[in-house]
Nucleic acid binder design. Structure first.
Lengths: 346, 346
DNA sequence: GTTAGCACTCTTTTAAATTGAGTGCTAACA
DNA sequence: TGTTAGCACTCAATTTAAAAGAGTGCTAAC
């Protein structure tokens, strides 16, 4: 009782998915039979649809309604049936990135443009520093009891912190510490800096004063990236109201909460980040997503690389019947704009 | 044909508002007649309600339904009828602020706690630097073609920027510039630094090299606050789904968009900021709000002051029938926790 | 001034009837 | 053997009608 997915079946499945994308309503045999390059009657379509249902590519919401694509159906569509679609993307190309903005402004704008361009919800993760190296460290005196520590990494990202002193510290010591920090940490990858290393530095500092220890700890804290919290910008959350299948109170509320919290999105992105494949694009459909509230959604993500090792993710969240082609194209376009953007800026 | 708002009328209005807050349904004369300390029949209440309607404190959504409070009614309630309510707030008191966190983390948390505590949407604006003074400026060399500028103000807030040089700059010049900047700008209020001042500095720098000019411009840009964009954290946007009168697709979508965009909230906050009254608390009801999408909401805001001149706003957005008493109490509590929080931290 | 009573209004709820899209099956056809 | 017309059947969605319920305004009596 197993069927072959022949050419006609594929064509019909594709027609079903395409139609469903537009309307959001279950699609019936009659509708498909009118579909251009497929000159068969609705009865024939019905037979084929019956087969496709049994094969699990489409689903009948109730006895007497049309069919809608299953996750498996969408998956086949994304993997095989989808043809690239080159139009409308030009808009993005012109609309975008002014070199003068700061990185976070650019990323916020990317989220916004992406959302308004696709009519889905968009997210952009701020690149993690992981893999970047320390380029410059400086301790400066603000006043007798305050220092400021500034750390610049090789992507020109700056972190800093005020250090409150409990005891005085003379200028010479500060100079010495600066030298120590720079000779020992310059060029060291951020993630290699750990407690052991700091302990060794404290020893080398020679002086066992607790003030020095405090300062070194503070510097370490400045450098250390909060590995946990990836920052995420979102935009267009309310676009989900455009799609009735996501727009009832229950679902909409849960989904928008997920966007608002961002933590789960961050987890999703982090997951994705560790992977390493050629295109940098991935598609999650429905239950494939690790986030329960999103089981009626699809998510398409792309990783971009601002500079050496500075890697972030852009993504689109929409209904399962999202227009995968244009989403993929939009993401590709933005990815290529972001890749290498940072070459000469903050 | 004008009535006096006597004691009984006030009592009845208060009862109507209280009841409506709970149920969200128009409330009828019968319901009120059962209300404890008011031993009159529903017919009497009806007469009084008729008066109150004519006076504009309550509204009849349609001929044969109960009454709901009008904006004017709520206003009276807030201004006169509301009695302070001291319970449940203790929770906030314990729940809150760990001194160790950074300011932005604290503020995000405040928004979250406020939202989950009240079941309304919450917003927190990040304090503007306006009024703060410059405490410390330092230019440091990162490498031959890059400097980093660090500016610390008297609230210990740090801003910084990488400066790309087009021409080399020797160490002596950097030292000279540092001296120049610190002697001239130290203690100067941030908002007093303008183009004229920078021009004068350039002159004083003596050297007419364009490199120096570039550096000074960059430093100015670092100091300059983006006056336009107040940053705002929001939380609990989806709480609006708890209130049917706000939860239909149309309104919910618009409201959530407003939260997401934040620009309009920022404008609201900025407006508020210029005011100067004793308590720092204000209540906007319905049409009193300058934001069209919020005409069915009420907003309560409180300004807090982290340190000298570092002033921000916390606010609650909810349905007009929000529980003004506990909202006001919650805000007061958080305000008092935030006030003066910054005394010794970043 | 207060209240019981009642007719009237209008929304909400409930139930029933109708419509309509779509299926599955059968029998006929090429 | 694959395709198709035809038809009975199913089930959600829509329409329609009826009933219920909540609340008011007014009147007349206390």
């Amino acid at each position: 009782m197993s069927f072959r997915l022949d050419d006609r079946k594929k064509k019909i499945l594709k027609a079903i998915i395409r139609t469903y994308m537009e309307t959001g309503e279950p699609v019936g045999s009659r509708t498909i039979s009118k579909y251009a390059d497929l000159n068969v009657s609705s009865a024939t379509i019905r037979n084929e649809m019956s087969d496709l249902t049994e094969m699990g590519y489409i689903i009948q919401p109730h006895t007497s309604a049309g069919r809608i694509p299953s996750d498996k159906g969408y998956r086949l569509y994304v993997d095989e049936l989808m043809k690239e679609k080159e139009d409308e993307i030009a808009e993005l190309r012109s609309l975008m990135i002014e070199q003068t903005d700061k990185v976070d402004k650019v990323l916020k704008k990317v989220a916004k443009v992406l959302a308004s361009n696709t009519n889905y919800a968009a997210m952009v993760s701020v690149p993690q520093y992981r893999g970047s190296r320390i380029k410059f460290i400086q301790l400066s005196r603000v006043n007798t009891r305050q220092l400021v520590a500034v750390v610049v990494n090789d992507n020109n990202l700056i972190r800093n912190q005020i250090i409150e002193l409990v005891d005085d510290m003379d200028d010479e010591t500060i100079l010495k510490l600066n030298l120590l920090l720079n000779t020992n940490l310059n060029g060291v990858p951020v993630q290699d800096i750990n407690l052991g290393m700091i302990a060794r530095l404290k020893e080398q500092a020679g002086m066992h004063s607790s003030v020095v220890a405090t300062v070194l700890d503070a510097v370490a804290a400045t450098i250390q990236v909060d590995q946990e919290d990836v920052e995420i910008y979102t935009s267009g959350a309310t676009n989900i109201f455009r799609y009735p299948e996501l727009a009832d109170k229950e679902k909409a509320s849960e989904l928008i909460s997920t966007f608002e919290e961002k933590q789960q999105l961050a987890d999703l992105v982090k997951d994705r980040m560790s992977d390493e494949d050629n295109t940098g694009l991935s598609v999650y459909i429905g239950e494939e997503l690790p986030i329960r509230t999103m089981k009626d959604c699809s998510v398409v993500t792309a990783t971009y690389e601002l500079g050496e090792g500075l890697r972030g993710t852009i993504g689109i969240i929409g209904p399962k019947r999202m227009d995968y082609e244009s989403v993929v194209e939009s993401l590709k376009e933005l990815k290529s704009q972001l890749d290498g953007l940072l070459t000469n800026k903050t």
